[in-house]
């Protein structure tokens, strides 16, 4: 979409006005600074998804809409988790981060901050795998998606 003030609120407003749900939404400028790229994760029947795509296409700031789930694609989300790292947890949390190929990017006497990247279900799985009472804080970016192979979204 056009990298313009208000473009994001048009998209967000459309979803709330028409009662579509947003599981996650992520947006940032692209290599072309006049364009932003947004990845929205939503749920709905085929008819609802078709309407969402049509309604998004009607927004004047939206340049192109692609349903990534129609074809082969990759999606990734990044999460930062601050966990308790005292006593037995200090070793346990390090091990779990390794198993999930996360990285500890900040350490204090009592905490680790773990960076984890993967698809949404992997991040969910990590949170389920560790002791919930050890979790102090989480922040997630929402999914970003891109087509596989030569499936390219260009304007």
């Amino acid at each position: 979409m056009e990298n313009e003030a208000g473009a994001l609120s048009r998209v967000a407003g459309l979803f709330s006005a028409r009662g579509y749900n947003i599981e996650s939404l992520n947006v940032a400028p692209t290599e072309d600074e006049t364009l932003s790229r947004m990845t929205i994760v939503t749920r709905g029947s085929d008819e609802v998804i078709e309407q969402i795509i049509k309604q998004l296409n009607k927004l004047v700031d939206v340049v192109k809409v692609v349903d990534l789930s129609e074809g082969r694609h990759i999606e990734r989300e990044m999460m930062l988790v601050k966990v308790k790292a005292e006593g037995s947890w200090r070793e346990e949390m390090k091990r779990m981060a390794d198993i999930f190929r996360g990285r500890i990017i900040d350490v204090s006497d009592s905490t680790y901050t773990i960076e984890l990247t993967g698809n949404v279900s992997k991040l969910d799985a990590f949170l389920e795998a560790i002791d919930p009472s050890a979790i102090l804080e989480t922040v997630r970016t929402g999914a970003s998606g891109i087509g596989r192979d030569d499936r390219i979204l260009r304007v």
């Binding site: 008819e47 078709e50 309407q51 049509k54 309604q55 296409n57 009607k58």
Partner: peptide
């Protein structure tokens, strides 16, 4: 003329 009106 509006694709969004079709199959809504």
């Amino acid at each position: 003329i509006d694709p969004a009106s079709i199959a809504k």
